[in-house]
Nucleic acid binder design. Structure first.
Length: 653
RNA sequence: GCGCCUGUAGCUCAGCUGGAUAGAGCAUCGGACUUCGAAUCCGCAGGUCGCAGGUUCGAAUCCUGCCGGGCGCGCCA
């Protein structure tokens, strides 16, 4: 199996060999990647390469002269006849005009490769661990999490299509202050069933926060105030914790029953564990609505030795770092935290070390172990990333919210330090621990709009629009439409640009909402094929498309041939949005072709040869759009359900 | 103050990683359904690529300095 671009690259590569034999190029010349691009101007041919610019230096010639010498060689090695014309243009471009056979073959390529068309092996099976979402299991996911989720999941799909061996992972942040606070918040609601009932009734009415009795006594000042906390308590009150006592107000009994709470830590109480597990279930459900599933769910607890059969890797790695110059104890720092049990000695990571490459160096040394002996989030992350590399991954990718960007250099720095540590320990694999094994993709924020106006969100009040709300809100006739709209629209911006998500636009069924545009294109193609099948005019799948002759058909054939290029590029650049843009462009080309030739060259016509060839093109287009949508996790409907008519629309509006 | 991201048509954004005359959608205006889907298409108009230097055959893209916007700089995660 091969593709159009591979054929042309092969041709150009043979031409460079010939050039070496003819003395046009020096003998010793490293093979290089040949860039092929589609010129904007039709007069520039079907494909252009800047190969001669790249080779000019090595050849000691100016690009234009080299191109002049190169052009006849391309013709000479073109034994298959793929090239109709080679032209030297501008300062040294080689413009190629393909023969009919060449571009027509791309239609056949697609049909023969089917669902596999577009796959490549640029990734060379590199083992990549892709961590994304990793939202704290302390509450519902919001739209920002959703964007990271869609980006991560689509990137995984795109990279797999490009030959990377990708494992996806969700890091469950179930240790520390935040989950502890979650447990306490739930606990407070549990102890006051009457107040809970009142509050839930009011919340159930749609009133987000206000209710007469306020929060339960002793509710933590910085606790989680959302309605979902009371709901969680209600749920646990019904199902229990598999513990002997039924009286939630019996503090002593519950503490005794908190068998997992041997350390007295709030984040390790049974009730806390049940609370975050429940939140995690909801997160898993929400992700499922977007068709996102993880290969691994990695519990932070195991890094602290809290899960069965795990050891305290955090303590272990801290101790080992302390044995080197990478970490040190600070006796002067007094803990600000009044809850601190002992005013002990905090442990710092020397992130400012001169021994760190500049790009991994931090502005200040960071705390790993607090003065009271509790490890920080950073400490666990050190153990976590050590563990990731120890599992044998070649490359790590983390998708993070852009507000975490200050954390990146620290994390890379510590991986570098771990490498040095392992070298000192005589680890033969130490070279694998380097800062540039970690790649962090920062996803910018999402602003939620309704009809152009920002939707107010205040996390503190507990009132915020959840990802689930958004998916439900933009779900229209088809069950998958909410998922499709959210996924596609999140991919219409590159990750490092802020994104406005307009709920009204996401429901719209016009070009403003590109997901419908692309899906409509797919449905339209299906409908043509359906008609052709009904009339018994579908050719065999491997029938040639040699009767295609229109410029628009040439352009479409060349466009579908680009899918493998787009996928490879998107995977390499970690930019899945390129696939989304490609699909809208391709559909635009198809809709244009369809409309322009409605009267003079319909797909199904009198001439059998033309009809068959056009149907092959239609089939190929459908295949390519379908493959692309699958990559984006968006459904490719065979038909679109009817729109509500104008009267209904107005009644709604 | 320091660091990261960002500035492209009236608005929202692409721009194949340094290539040829910078492109879409929306909005405005004007056109196209007797046929395989008008959820579509065609056309008009719209630009000092924030500003100023620099690098070279060539810059929206790379380097420097300003200006404007966003986000970070916890013994939070």
């Amino acid at each position: 199996m091969t593709t159009l671009h591979e054929r042309i690259r092969g041709l150009l590569s043979r031409a460079s060999q010939a050039a070496q034999e003819h003395g046009v190029l020096p003998q010793a010349l490293a093979p290089r990647e040949i860039q092929l691009e589609r010129p904007r101007q039709a007069s520039h041919g079907d494909m252009a390469t800047n190969l001669c610019f790249a080779l000019a230096k090595a050849a000691g010639k100016n690009p234009r002269a080299l191109a002049e010498a190169f052009a006849p060689l391309v013709r000479e090695v073109d034994v298959e006849g793929w090239i109709q014309a080679v032209e030297v243009a501008g300062p040294g471009f080689l413009n190629l005009r393909l023969s009919d056979a060449a571009w027509q073959a791309s239609v056949t390529d697609v049909l023969l490769q089917g669902a596999d068309f577009g796959l490549g092996n640029a990734g060379a099976q590199e083992r990549v661990l892709l961590e994304f979402v990793s939202a704290n299991p302390t509450g519902p996911m919001h739209v920002g999490h959703g964007r990271g989720a869609v980006l991560g999941d689509t990137l995984a799909r795109v990279m797999r299509a490009s030959g990377y061996d990708v494992t996806t992972e969700y890091y469950i942040n179930n240790v520390g202050n935040q989950v502890g606070k979650l447990g306490e918040s739930v606990w407070c609601w549990l102890r006051e069933p009457d107040k809970r009932a009142t509050a839930l009734a009011i919340w159930g009415n749609g009133d987000p926060v206000a209710f007469p009795d306020g929060f339960p006594a002793g509710f933590p000042e910085d606790g989680y105030r959302g309605a979902y906390i009371a709901e969680c308590a209600e749920d646990l009150a019904k199902t229990g914790l598999d513990c002997p006592t039924a009286d939630w107000t019996d503090d002593a009994a519950w503490r005794a029953a908190d068998v997992e709470s041997v350390t007295g830590r709030a984040d390790n109480r049974t009730i806390t564990v049940r609370a975050w597990q429940r939140q995690l279930d909801r997160i898993r459900d929400d992700l499922g609505k977007l068709d996102i599933r993880f290969d691994n769910w990695f519990s932070e607890r195991r890094l602290h030795g809290l899960d069965p059969e795990t050891r305290d890797a955090v303590k272990d790695v801290t101790r080992r770092l302390l044995g080197t110059d990478w970490a040190y104890e600070d006796e002067n720092a007094a803990p600000d935290d009044e809850d601190a049990v002992v005013a002990g000695r905090a442990v710092f990571f020397r992130g400012t070390s001169e021994n760190l490459p500049k790009q991994f160096r931090d502005g200040k040394d960071r705390v790993i172990i607090r003065g009271d002996g509790r490890p920080t989030y950073f400490a666990a992350d050190i153990a976590y990333h050590d563990h990731k590399l120890a599992r044998g991954f070649d490359h790590l990718i983390n998708v993070l919210g852009a507000d975490h960007h200050g954390y990146v250099s620290r994390l890379k720095g510590v991986i570098h330090a771990l490498g040095d540590l392992r070298r000192q320990e005589g680890d033969a694999n130490a070279a694998r621990w380097t800062g540039d094994r970690l790649e962090v993709l920062l996803v910018q924020m999402v602003a939620l709009l309704r009809d152009g106006k920002p939707v107010p969100m205040g996390k503190r009040s507990g009132e915020f629009v959840t990802l689930r709300d958004v998916i439900d809100d933009v779900t229209t006739a088809e069950p998958a439409s909410g998922r499709d709209a959210v996924r596609f629209l999140f991919l219409m911006r590159k990750a490092d640009a802020q994104l406005d998500f307009d709920l009204e636009v996401a429901r719209r069924t016009s070009m403003e909402n590109p997901v419908y545009y692309v899906q409509y294109g797919h449905a339209r193609l299906c409908s043509i094929l359906e008609r052709a099948a009904k009339e018994g005019r579908l050719p065999a799948l491997d029938a040639p498309a040699t009767a295609l002759a229109l410029d628009d058909e040439r352009a479409l054939a060349l466009a579908i041939a680009e899918l493998p290029e787009v996928i490879a590029r998107a995977a390499k650049a970690r930019e899945p949005h390129q696939v989304a843009y490609y699909l809208t462009d391709l559909c635009r080309a198809f809709h244009g072709y369809y409309s322009r030739h409605k009267s003079d060259a319909r797909v199904i016509g009198d001439d059998d040869a033309e009809t068959h060839a056009r149907l092959q093109l239609v089939r190929a287009l459908k295949q390519v759009i379908g493959n692309g949508l699958r990559l984006l996790g968006v459904s490719a409907p065979e038909r679109m359900t009817a729109l509500p008519d104008a009267a209904e629309m107005e009644a709604e509006g």
